[in-house]
Amino acid sequence: MRTMNFAKRNFKEIIRDPLSVVFAVLLPLLLLFIFQQFKIPSDNYRLENFTPGIVVFGFSFISMFTATLVSKDRTSSFLIRLGVSPMKPVEYILGYVLAIIPMIALQNVLFFILAVVLGLPFSVHIIWAILVSFAVSVLFIALGIIIGSVFSEKASSGIASIVVQLVCFTSGMYFPREMLGKGFSKVCEFLPFESCVTIIKGVMNNDLAGITPRNIIVFAAYTVVVFVIAVVLFQKKMLSDNKGS
């Protein structure tokens, strides 16, 4: 009840300052469209490979605007007000997550519609991919909450853009990670972004064999750990002692 009330408020805050939403949706759409206009002779840019990359790329913007929303709230007195109310930490976190899920839905539906328009064969697996990507998005929302809990509003968007860059370079969406050498490739394997893309890709293309146990383990471990850190940090920074310092 309190959670939904807070989610509703967050949702309104987001859509009434729509610039970030526009960013998170339009930029990936634009990239998806543009890269299909050149006939790049690399498998990376075939729709069945590139679309999952775009989905995860879009999520990195979700991290960015989650971070902005959280840090804006944290540094405003509005949170003092909520901090003395009976609201519980878990209600805050769920309130943020629930408010952002409609954005994820909007992104996903539009990305896949464009992909199908551009020639991706439609199948029921696309629906599964959309559902799986909701699960993947939790990692990015949690990353955003962490960044927003630690940094000021201005610093947040800068720090969050590191997530965007990491997705570009380590997810394998633009180039195979082996291209930058063995060491780099190993690092990518232990970052979550390549696994996120591979999981969505495997489900979308009905190629579950393409998803390795490592992908599942890395993704699941990061999601759990990052989510727990998000809850703990948020609680510590937002609702306690160190407020403002």
Binding site: R9, D17, S76, S77, F78, R81
Partner: peptide, 8 residues
């Protein structure tokens, strides 16, 4: 400091 939700 005034504490209200700005966009509501």
């Amino acid at each position: 400091e005034t504490a209200i939700a700005p966009n509501l």
